[in-house]
């Protein structure tokens, strides 16, 4: 599958897709987007790289094993929910430092969703890709 066209296109598409995924994550609170779809786009970027250059290249770029991203993501979301609890309010209450700014605990929660989704998708797909070889 590793044709020159795919490999060259990946070199340009991959960073764009990653940027786009972060953009989706960030804007999700007000515009279409969010952690789930952002995570999916980021996973797509890595899958593309894996198709072009093989899973080992994609794993190297990711640095952390995808299956480890799952607990990291879950813990991030959990911590976002615990923030309110520590302040004596019910678990998962959204906290905002200042109204109107998107930097509240819901964004942190969404970051957790993002990381979990990337971890889950890449865990499954990388494992399947390596199954054949």
């Amino acid at each position: 599958m590793t044709t020159l066209i795919v490999r060259t296109a990946t070199r340009y598409l991959m960073p764009l897709l990653l940027l786009f995924s972060l953009f989706l994550l960030w804007r999700g609170h007000h515009e279409p987007g969010g952690g789930f779809v952002g995570g999916l786009v980021a996973a797509t970027a890595f899958v593309l790289l894996a198709i072009a250059d093989g899973t080992s290249a994609a794993r190297r770029l990711l640095r952390i094993a995808p299956v480890r991203l799952v607990p990291v993501g879950l813990a991030t979301s959990l911590v976002a929910g615990l923030g309110a609890f520590v302040l004596g309010r019910p678990f998962l209450t959204g906290l905002w430092p200042e109204a109107g700014i998107a930097l509240g605990t819901p964004l942190l929660f969404d970051v957790g969703v993002y990381l979990t989704v990337v971890g889950v998708v890449l865990t499954i797909l990388f494992a399947l890709m390596e199954e054949g070889s």
């Binding site: 999700g28 998962l92 969404d110």
Partner: peptide, 15 residues
């Protein structure tokens, strides 16, 4: 504090 209802439901109302 979010205008995207879908996302607000996901990360806040029904987090």
């Amino acid at each position: 504090h979010g205008r995207n209802v879908v996302n607000v439901i996901l990360v806040d109302f029904r987090a």
